[in-house]
Design a protein around this nucleic acid. Structure first.
Length: 153
DNA sequence: GCCAACGTTGGC
DNA sequence: GCCAACGTTGGC
């Protein structure tokens, strides 16, 4: 069982959109490191924080669960898509993604500011300087701590 | 809107 | 394979 953090711009796709959809294919990731986490390291049943970037506030908004094995990201073959990749072949797609199902929306956002301040969360990837990766691993300890924080106040 | 950090591209 | 130029992310 592993834990993750997936970023979404609040204005593009928020936790409320996710709650309504119940399930989403995590397409349009065009970063090899992020893709490799999905393809190589995620397993069905893993939990992931749903993180609002560019949010007000920015922070962890809820929890998602990996609900599929990796499959081709169809947007790479869609010529009209902003994410179309002319170098990718149908026989051997460059970009793969997994599906996430909705688990819960936190009663409140655990903000990035709060995460940075909490001593129990030192070393967490999302708080590192210049941490831009849109999919990140989270340790079990850090995962549990943030869940705990979300229930406070 | 600014800008630091860092990934990607392409010339050599 | 190096590295400068360029593009993108994302906090502030």
């Amino acid at each position: 069982m592993k834990y993750w953090l997936i970023k979404s711009e609040e204005g593009c796709y928020s936790i409320d959109d996710f709650k309504k959809d119940k399930k989403v294919s995590w397409e349009e990731i065009r970063n090899y490191q992020a893709r490799n986490y999905m393809v190589r390291d995620m397993s069905v049943g893993d939990l992931a924080f749903f993180y609002h970037s560019m949010g007000n506030p920015t922070g962890v908004a809820g929890i998602a669960k990996v609900s599929s094995k990796p499959h081709p990201d169809l947007s790479q073959f869609d010529k009209k898509s902003e994410y179309f990749d002319p170098k990718s072949k149908i026989e051997n797609p460059t970009w793969q993604c997994v599906d996430f199902s909705f688990v819960e929306k936190f009663p409140r956002i655990v903000s990035l500011e709060e995460i940075k301040k909490d001593k129990n969360l030192s070393g967490i990837v999302v708080a590192a300087k210049g941490s831009r990766l849109s999919i990140q691993p989270v340790s079990e300890k850090h995962f549990k701590r943030i869940v705990e924080l979300s229930k406070q106040k």
